[in-house]
């Protein structure tokens, strides 16, 4: 059985925490939580975003956020006032940049050289293909709202 190169759980957490605290501040920290493997992401309304890495290492980095968290993140990153309306494009820009930063950092950890795709953002939970293997996952809560960062590769890679 061949071993699959994968980022360390501690590194995924470190990367996510650093991205989080750098842009959302230290007052509300990112609190990791334990969830059983295979447990679906548990927010009613979800935004998700994925970015793929290809080259020396291939894989996909996915971020899922509750809709509330996605809205709050967007407000902070784009410096929108409390009353300002938030469009799908605003959400896509902010959530896309989040997965870009997490994915970019994970890319730097894995064998290179590799390239990043542009991020794809969608309203809804992420779904992974049957031949996708989860090699790392961080479940966490921020200001009471859930977030999940997962890394997948394919068996053939």
């Amino acid at each position: 059985m061949s071993s699959i190169a994968a980022p360390e759980a501690a590194d995924v957490q470190a990367v996510t925490e650093q991205v989080w605290s750098s842009f959302l501040g230290d007052e509300e920290p990112l609190i990791p939580r334990f969830m059983e493997p295979g447990h679906p992401f548990d927010a009613e309304e979800v935004w998700s975003s994925a970015i793929s890495i290809g080259g020396g290492w291939s894989g996909t980095v996915t971020v899922e956020l509750s809709a509330n968290l996605a809205l709050e993140l967007t407000r902070v990153m784009l410096a929108l006032e409390a009353g300002d309306p938030i469009s799908d494009e605003d959400l896509a820009d902010a959530v896309g940049e989040l997965v870009n930063m997490v994915g970019g950092n994970i890319k730097s950890l894995m064998p290179g050289p590799s390239v990043l795709t542009l991020p794809i953002v969608a309203a809804g939970r992420a779904a992974h293909a049957s031949d996708a293997i989860e090699v790392a996952r961080l479940d966490a809560v921020w200001a009471g709202e859930p977030v999940r960062v997962s890394v997948h590769t394919r068996a053939s890679e």
Binding site: F23, M77, L78, A79, D93, A94, G96, E97, N100
Partner: peptide
């Protein structure tokens, strides 16, 4: 290329 990142850097 990220509007969000340009926005953050612009403010700083």
């Amino acid at each position: 290329d990220s509007r969000a990142m340009r926005s953050i850097l612009r403010r700083i």
